[in-house]
Computed example of a mutant assay.
Amino acid sequence: MTERHVLGISGGRDSAALAVYMAQHYPELDIEYFYTDTGKELPEVYEFLGRLEGFLGKPIERLNPDRDFDYWLREYKNFLPSPQTRWCTRQLKIKPFEEWVYPSVAQGITVHSYVAIRADEDYREGYVSGKETLKTHLPFREAGIDKAGVIDILEAAGVGLPEYYRWRSRSGCTFCFYQQKIEWVRLMEEHPEAFEEAKGYEKNALEHGSPFTWSQGESLDDLSRPERIAKIREDHELRVARIHAKRRINPLHDTHIEFDEIYGSAAKLCLTCHK
């Protein structure tokens, strides 16, 4: 072996569409599809991975880290991960990938990594390893494929979109700190056991002196109070209404509004988790 071709699946729409695109346009490449599993993912993610495997006709390899979220939480003195200290991405996503491919790199094997950065995402960059034989490729950017193109690819292939897009904007752990407050409310409704687990982690962290809560500015206990839930829903609906008011009336226009349009650019999000 002198070369490997690898493509990471996040559980989101873009990376799934890239897997479909590569299988259709480059069938001669023996691409290894992988998924770094934290063990704290939404059940809808696993269902979506199964559908994608059915289309690809080959398994998506699970890169389970040697140590799970609970282990690393203890290592970080029970401090929750946050936008300021994203140890979850480093330890549960990037590190397993590096341990999977670096032995090949050390042997002089060229590893081609395909990343689902779209043509309309100029603000994003791919993973940079610093290794000469670990090369990152951005097929969507090169082919001019944007968000609409990604959706077209998945629909045409019969894979469709992940079910969680019905109530949440992106893949990732159930307690991802990048969720909007309305998404925390919806997590409580869709997967109450996962919400309660997140509350447990948060209480434990606060008791150990962690300065962070999952949702910026308030604990999940406070967020889940009935009056607070009502206010979060009201604020969200007002944001949606303002965007609808700005749009021209067009019965053929897709009325779905994505969270990026409501809450601003997703440029800050972890590329590893949310593609």
Score class of each variant (00 low, 15 high):
89 T>V: 10
7 L>Y: 10
54 G>I: 12
160 G>I: 07
79 F>I: 13
35 Y>P: 02
59 P>K: 14
17 A>H: 10
247 R>Y: 04
143 A>P: 03
78 N>M: 15
240 V>Y: 07
245 A>C: 01
33 Y>W: 13
177 F>L: 07
261 E>Q: 14
74 R>E: 15
18 L>S: 09
270 C>V: 08
5 H>D: 05
214 W>H: 01
162 P>G: 03
165 Y>H: 13
246 K>N: 04
16 A>Q: 03
258 E>L: 11
257 I>T: 01
132 E>P: 02
223 L>Y: 01
268 K>E: 15
134 L>R: 01
34 F>W: 12
106 A>D: 13
265 S>V: 14
95 K>A: 11
216 Q>H: 12
98 E>A: 11
151 I>W: 10
101 V>K: 06
111 V>K: 06
86 R>W: 11
221 D>I: 06
56 L>S: 03
97 F>G: 00
274 H>P: 00
157 A>W: 14
33 Y>N: 06
258 E>G: 01
274 H>Y: 04
226 P>W: 09
225 R>Y: 04
200 G>E: 12
71 Y>G: 08
145 I>E: 01
204 N>C: 08
252 L>S: 09
214 W>C: 04
119 A>Y: 03
263 Y>I: 06
237 E>L: 12
113 S>L: 10
183 E>G: 00
241 A>E: 13
117 I>A: 02
120 D>T: 00
41 E>I: 04
254 D>E: 14
171 S>G: 07
